[in-house]
Amino acid sequence: MAITFLTTSKEIGDTSVGYGIKSIMNKIGILEDELIQDFKAFFNSIRYSDTPKSKMIKVDQIKEHSDLKEIPNRPGFYVIFSDYPMKHNACTCELIINGKCYKALYRGHSYGVQKRIGSHCFKSRYKGDYTVCLNLNGKSGINIDVDRRYCFHSWYVAYHRMSYNNRSNIFIRETAEKAFDECFSKPVGCKDKVKRMDKSN
């Protein structure tokens, strides 16, 4: 039997019949605000290093494409760090390895983080797979193994596990992006337009 959702001719959200999209969006926005505060508290409590305090984080260095095997190809949030010099990087997030500082150049999320990192850092192997990648010099994606601009620098990835019982939710991962940007400012290599949901009273 088909189920029919009824609405009136009024703006959806102002009706008492059926369901209100406006009300639902407001509730999602309120939930997003709460999750952002939770993620911000988490980000403010950790320090990125080769021995992160949280078991939710795994840090790996990548030089060659084969190094990606150390990064789980599972859902998660990630940050790409490097000592590659970039002007006008407002992001304050840093990774400390053996006393040396590496700046966050990109943050993102994916259902399969290993492949997504590959598209950022070994772009020539992933042509056509992704259109929005780490952008440092006006192009989407770089090749840290062959491009002389990048191969003499160090590159690290901090992977945040974001799955439960082998399930993941894009809303949660995108909320982590928004919280990261509010904590540290958006890394210079990110060209997306992530922002909080609009809420109407």
Rank of each mutant, 00 (worst) to 15 (best):
F43A: 03
S49D: 03
G29L: 14
N98H: 12
R161Q: 12
V146C: 10
C190W: 00
E34N: 13
Y150R: 04
F39Y: 13
G138H: 01
I117A: 10
I36C: 09
T8S: 10
G76I: 13
W155T: 13
F184D: 10
L68G: 11
K139D: 05
I30E: 12
N137V: 04
L95W: 08
G29I: 05
A179V: 10
R125T: 00
R125F: 05
R47E: 14
R47C: 14
S185T: 04
C151W: 13
C151G: 09
I28C: 09
K193D: 02
G76E: 05
L136W: 03
A41M: 00
D198V: 10
M25I: 06
Y126D: 04
K27R: 15
E182S: 06
E182Y: 12
Y150V: 08
W155D: 15
R116E: 03
M25T: 12
R149M: 07
I170H: 02
I62D: 05
Y126S: 09
S110K: 11
S200P: 08
K178I: 14
A2Y: 06
I12G: 15
I80W: 14
S163R: 09
V132N: 04
V113F: 05
F43V: 03
E64D: 10
K127M: 11
D83L: 02
A179E: 02
Y156H: 12
K178F: 03
F5Y: 12
T51V: 10
A179K: 01
C101F: 07
L134V: 04
D67W: 05
M162S: 07
R107I: 07
A2W: 13
A90M: 08
D67Y: 05
Y159G: 08
P52W: 00
T92H: 06
G13L: 02
M197N: 12
D14M: 06
D67F: 04
